[in-house]
C-alpha cells in the first residue's frame, strides 16, 4: 500500500516537473527576442520536458515492455528534436531572419553564402 503511494508521488512529481518545463518554454517563446533564442527555449521543452513526462508515465505504469518503449521514445525524441531545431534555424536564417542586435559576437553576418 505505502510503496504504491511512493510510486504515485514520484511519478506525479515527474509529470508536473516536465509540464512546468514545457510551460516555461512557452513563456520563453513569448518573451525572448529573436527566433534563434526561441528555438533554444523550445529545445529545452523538447529534451528535458518531454523526457521527464515519459519517465513519469513509465514509473506510474511500470512494466518491462513499457520501460523499453520509454527508452526508445526518449532517444528518438532527443535526436529528432535536435534535427528539427537545426533545420528550422537554418531555414529561418536563409529566409532572412536577422538575429537580435544584442547578439555579440556575430561571426556569421559577414558570411553570405553559407550552405
Amino acid at each position: 500500500m505505502s510503496s504504491e503511494m511512493i510510486i504515485t508521488v514520484i511519478g506525479s512529481a515527474l509529470l508536473i516537473f516536465g509540464a512546468a518545463i514545457i510551460f516555461s518554454a512557452a513563456i520563453g517563446v513569448l518573451k525572448l527576442p529573436d527566433v534563434f533564442t526561441r528555438t533554444s527555449a523550445i529545445g529545452t521543452a523538447a529534451g528535458l520536458g518531454v523526457s521527464l513526462m515519459i519517465v513519469g508515465v513509465v514509473v506510474i505504469d511500470f512494466s518491462v515492455l513499457n520501460l523499453i518503449k520509454g527508452i526508445i521514445a526518449i532517444i528518438a525524441q532527443l535526436i529528432t528534436s535536435a534535427i528539427g531545431s537545426f533545420v528550422l534555424a537554418r531555414a529561418s536564417y536563409m529566409t532572412g531572419s536577422e538575429p537580435v542586435s544584442t547578439t555579440l559576437p556575430d561571426e556569421l553576418s559577414h558570411q553570405a553564402n553559407a550552405t
Binding site: 514545457i22 517563446v29 527566433v35 526561441r38 523550445i42 523538447a46 531555414a91 529561418s92 529566409t95
Partner: peptide
C-alpha cells in the same frame, strides 16, 4: 514564418 513554425513545434 520561422517563428510560427517554431511555435507549432512547441
Amino acid at each position: 514564418p520561422g517563428n510560427a513554425a517554431a511555435a507549432g513545434d512547441l
